[in-house]
Amino acid sequence: MILATKLHFKYGSPSYPSEQDIQSIYLSGEGLEGFYPKEQVYDMLVRGKVIRVNIYPYPLLEEMTSYKGEKYVRSMPNESRHDNLLNLPRV
Rank of each mutant, 00 (worst) to 15 (best):
L88T: 01
S24I: 08
V73N: 05
P57C: 07
S80I: 00
Y16Q: 11
V41D: 00
P89Q: 06
Y58C: 00
K38M: 12
G31C: 01
E33C: 13
T65M: 15
K68C: 14
Y36T: 09
E79I: 06
M44Q: 13
N54H: 02
E63T: 09
K10G: 04
G69W: 15
S24L: 10
V73G: 07
V53M: 03
Y58P: 08
K38R: 14
I2Y: 02
I22W: 07
L88S: 01
L7V: 01
Q40N: 14
E19W: 05
E30S: 10
E30M: 10
F35H: 07
G29R: 02
S28D: 02
E39S: 14
M76S: 13
Y72V: 00
V41E: 05
S28H: 12
S18D: 11
G29F: 01
S24F: 01
Y11P: 00
I2H: 02
K38Y: 08
K10P: 03
L45V: 00
M1C: 08
G29A: 04
S75N: 14
Y36C: 03
H8M: 06
Q40D: 15
M1T: 08
E30C: 10
I55F: 05
Y42W: 15
G29L: 09
E62Y: 07
N87C: 02
R90F: 04
M76R: 14
L45D: 06
P17G: 02
I2V: 05
M44K: 15
E39C: 06
R81P: 14
P77C: 05
D21I: 10
R81N: 15
S66N: 09
L7W: 06
G31F: 06
G31Q: 05
L61F: 10
G69P: 13
I25T: 02
R47Q: 15
M64R: 11
E79G: 03
V91S: 12
K49Y: 08
G31H: 08
Q40E: 14
D83S: 09
K6M: 05
H82A: 06
